[in-house]
Design a protein around this nucleic acid. Sequence first.
DNA 1: TATCCAAGGTAAGTT
DNA 2: AACTTACCTTGGATA
Length: 308
Amino acid sequence: METGSIPLSSLPGGFDVHATLESGQSYLWRREDGRMYEGDEDGSPWYYIALDLDEQDAATVPLPDGDPHAIRFRVAADSLEWEATCDAHDALVHLLRLDDDLDAIVADAPDEALIGEAYDAYRGLRLVRDPPFGCTVSFICSAQMRVERIHEMVSTLAREYGEPVTLDGRTYHAFPTPDRLAAATEAELRDLGLGYRAPYVQRTAEMVATGEAHPASAAGLAYEDAREYLTRFVGVGEKVADCVLLFSLGYDEAIPLDTWMRTVVSDYYPDCDRGNYTETSRALRERFGGRYAGYVQTYVFHLLRTRE
DNA sequence: TATCCAAGGTAAGTT
DNA sequence: AACTTACCTTGGATA
């Protein structure tokens, strides 16, 4: 086992791990105490992730040698401490976007009440950078589901099809590789509670496993072209595509237009409702300051979902 | 106890 | 291209 730490003072804008990992951006991390989404964090719990990535996903995550690997960390008084099966420093910085300058991103936001309230309430919330395949399947599962249940579904897939990885005596399960998921049947996935998403997950996994396409291949395309590319996967429409762009591929301007954001549009920015996804998305992106509009979206989403 | 409803939507069929 | 409808499952609200 290797260990290390990262001083919190080196993270501009701080790091709120609870807000970052329990706000519905990533479903690939879990809390050691199993109390994900069950209220405020109790002390400083450990969070862990196991990684067993295919070639394209592995190329996006800076790990020192081949998969699989497990990483866990917690945020102590003045540092982030980690333990892993390898030197995980660079992978943590990558996955949790610890190199983002939050102060600069917040300063870049439009001066509006709702946005200011969200940024003030959850300062330290960072976007995540999930491996593309796991992120894509997570959000295929997210259709018409509550955040807690999406997490359950992804955990179930990992338990049933994922590679076990042992770290210091504890065994974790990585999100399954495309091959392993492609080999599952629709019936099996339905039995695991995926409902009508079962064939979407299987067919998308098959597209990736056979090399027909890969979510990581969208990286580098112009934003709206990248979104269009991702919709070729079964179960991926414009909203899920925006989630993958924002939470995996670093398109910080992407604003997933979900039910919460549509409520925001009708309650706060009715003039941004242009009747269709693309145009409404463009209008809201403009209103959210453009370049980091997705950062604004994530804070506002979390604020609306957690207040009251 | 039985029904209804909405949950971070998408695909397929119809105008 | 815009509009409808069906779709699995589950927990919480309503009757």
